[in-house]
Design a protein around this nucleic acid. Structure first.
Lengths: 238, 238
DNA sequence: AATTATAACTTGTATATACAAGATAGTAAA
DNA sequence: TTTACTATCTTGTATATACAAGTTATAATT
């Protein structure tokens, strides 16, 4: 209940998704919004810039803010969303199987990926994601133990992000994502229902904390037919 | 470009990429930057927010702005970049073959995708992208004629974006992107060096102008082994 | 009727001030 | 020594003002 501009952002975003503000129409002008929310123009502008950033509106100088068609965002994978948040959002039935949970010492590959020392403790978690009775995603997560002391199977079966943010009170902030297509490994064939697919989509994730320290490396391996990635991109202004 | 905050953004971004500001170190404080550029704090903050948005720095309240490791961005596909810009950037040898250039009337699929009328003129362009002597990308572009009156093979062989922005002076603003994996069509097999690959990466692009009008629909079909997508994502703040 | 000028909107940029809140180092008290 | 406080850094939020610049409709002129 403190951030004025985030509250306004949320309220307008909700109204757009609810259809109160329809795609193609214009939002009230900044001046009008200033009066509606009895705040300053800069605060309104902060909220509107967030909306533009996230693809809700398009601002046009001299004209106004045009509401974009957000209905097409059928699969909001863009950004940083955990599997649980995503599956909950889609309302699909899903299950998670924890296939591995171990405290290991990193090999060369992990040492470079995680900026870790040879003797440092690393949590390795393998999880299979089942959607509508098909095992279609294999998530291989590596966490530095210095950030997450203790991990249980119970935590892994739910959301590790949830645990970190709500129990450990650390803020996950940003990630670098890399999508490629490769050949399935024996591990993929063992854990996933590949059904003859000869390719696998590999999403590598480097997750950072609020203070820019690298915290997690994840490899998410998807059966190609069930993979979809949606992104909203603005052409860089410079 | 007279924009003070964009100039400051560019200058700091350049210094980060040149290594003047190194990854892990902190930028000068906002107060110091105010004095360096003899401007106001809000202007500095606008520049810093752009840097944060584009993955150059991470701001931490009470501490400062930490420079992130941008060297790892080996393939800056994130955002909205044309094939020509990308290939030039990577310094790889590349060629474009225009396989089709026609003014058509849209079928049902295109009418919905482009919000077009049945009798409306649509430019259809098929281009094959060759990198290092391998035909690995098939781009199928559809433009509304009401925006682009005339297209020539010469223009298509170079960059259509270039033509639109520099000749027609229209600003391309944002795009929605969708990445999936599918089976190759006969067309893919005909035009691309598939070398036995049984999957194809399909990138669908919806490109919008500055004024939020939908301008182009593109389907970019990639041979899976040569496909790579890199993204920088911030966890949404709300 | 067609063109031009003007006034009134709109958003964009730049500046200044005030206070809130997180981080940190040094000092004083236990 | 340890703990607690305080002063002083840092960035975050909110406000006000001024002017620039793009858009649009209306009025005035040709």
């Amino acid at each position: 209940m403190q951030n004025k501009y985030l509250l306004i952002y949320r309220e307008i975003a909700d109204k757009i998704q609810a259809g109160t503000f329809k795609a193609g129409e214009k939002l009230p002008s900044e001046h009008e919004l200033v009066q509606t929310y009895s705040t300053s123009r800069e605060t309104i502008r902060k909220a509107l810039n967030q909306l533009a950033q996230n693809g809700y509106i398009q601002k046009v100088q001299g004209k106004g803010s045009i509401v974009l068609d957000t209905q097409k965002f059928d699969f909001p994978v863009s950004g940083l969303v955990s599997f649980k948040e995503l599956a909950d959002n889609l309302g699909e039935s899903h299950k998670t199987y924890v296939e591995k949970l171990a405290l290991i010492e990193p090999d060369d590959f992990l040492q470079t990926q995680l900026h870790a020392l040879p003797q440092e403790g690393i949590w390795e978690v393998h999880r299979v994601r089942e959607i509508e009775n098909e095992r279609i995603i294999l998530d291989k997560d590596f966490f530095k133990q210095m950030y997450v002391e203790k991990l249980t199977e119970e935590i892994c079966r739910n959301s590790i992000y949830d645990y970190i943010e709500n129990e450990l009170h650390m803020m996950i902030s940003f990630a670098k994502k890399e999508i490629t297509v490769g050949e399935p490994t024996d591990e993929d064939r063992k854990y996933l229902d590949l059904e003859g697919f000869s390719n696998i989509v590999v999403v590598k994730n480097y997750v950072y904390f609020d203070d820019a320290s690298l915290f997690q490396y994840t490899e998410s391996r998807h059966r190609p037919d069930r993979f979809k990635f949606v992104d909203f991109a603005r052409r860089s202004s410079v």
